[in-house]
Nucleic acid binder design. Sequence first.
DNA 1: CAAAGCATGTAAGCAGTTACATGATTGT
DNA 2: ACAATCATGTAACTGCTTACATGCTTTG
Lengths: 192, 192
Amino acid sequence: MSIKHAILGFLSWKPFTGYELKKWFADSLSFHWSGNNNQIYGTLIQLHKDGLVTNEIVAREKYPDRKVYAITQAGFDELRAWLGSGAELPRLRADFHIRLAWADMLGDEELHTLIGAYESRLRNQILMCRETLRRGQAEPARTPRETLLWNAVAERNAAVYEDELAWAGALGEKLGRLRLDGSRDVAREDMK
Amino acid sequence: MSIKHAILGFLSWKPFTGYELKKWFADSLSFHWSGNNNQIYGTLIQLHKDGLVTNEIVAREKYPDRKVYAITQAGFDELRAWLGSGAELPRLRADFHIRLAWADMLGDEELHTLIGAYESRLRNQILMCRETLRRGQAEPARTPRETLLWNAVAERNAAVYEDELAWAGALGEKLGRLRLDGSRDVAREDMK
DNA sequence: CAAAGCATGTAAGCAGTTACATGATTGT
DNA sequence: ACAATCATGTAACTGCTTACATGCTTTG
């Protein structure tokens, strides 16, 4: 997977400038791209070379010129072919899980604090996702089916954070129980 | 996040060769790294340069020499410092979700097939995860707490695929319902 | 008057991937 | 005979990231 097809996707909707695409990527919580210039402008140049998009320079007073990109038939065909090809498995890249694998080096307090910090970060992210979802799915919304698809993706994205939060909470509790079942020394340490 | 700290983690357990580490990464379903040579051997060379590991060449009859890497105190300190630092948010990179965002171009049949293919891939992956979990958490298992942590991570990894499958199933149903509520033409198309 | 927005682009670098290269040994 | 395992390493590449560079305009 690369950002290429996502850009073609946006352009299949309507023409955009690099700057506008950048904002879409940067603002989206479901598409996990930073929206950095190098990648977007670079990919657009490549797509243009490959004949998948055309561009038109629109000069304006008082503001910089805009380079408006539009999808070509070849671009449309490429997008459609990609849609039909098999998707990769989803992949949760969770720094935190790698850390946990070696976290037995840490004391109970420290581990507990770490999990707590992770939970609070997750809670914050969930609030943002939920707020975005609540504020409406203005997005494309050209057909009921498209709206359903966009909402499903955004919903699933939020759910991943929520599930992760629930899992972290359950883990914290399990660790607490293990702590009680364990040595009295550990229990005493608990009282600071 | 990079593989650097995961390698230090393994070495904090006991000394390993690059070849052995490679297998750990390649075989793990929870650590999402391919276990390619370039990255592992390269990182080991870097870690050695930085004084975080030592290496000892062990010559053997009939087999190639082994370069056995061991963690140093500096490496241990680095690992511990990293563990204490804040973790990033988890990030589900799902090709399939990006595809769905533009899948309204596809016909009902085609979309249904696509979701079905994704579900079957997920089911397969879940079987593998569950089998690995069932066959026991031999892994490090030096303390009950470490076992708990490793199991929790593996469990969460499997759950992500299961949740994704449930979500995809629910999405398929929603699309089906929308289809019935929609035009008769679509319904007729259904009968092939 | 400073910050944010509009708009394009480049430089440098990190993390990770597949594939190549070598060569003995063991299992099917 | 062929494939897999043991074992180390390199080359070439993709995808993505932060930060830099420019310069005008609008908003706070």
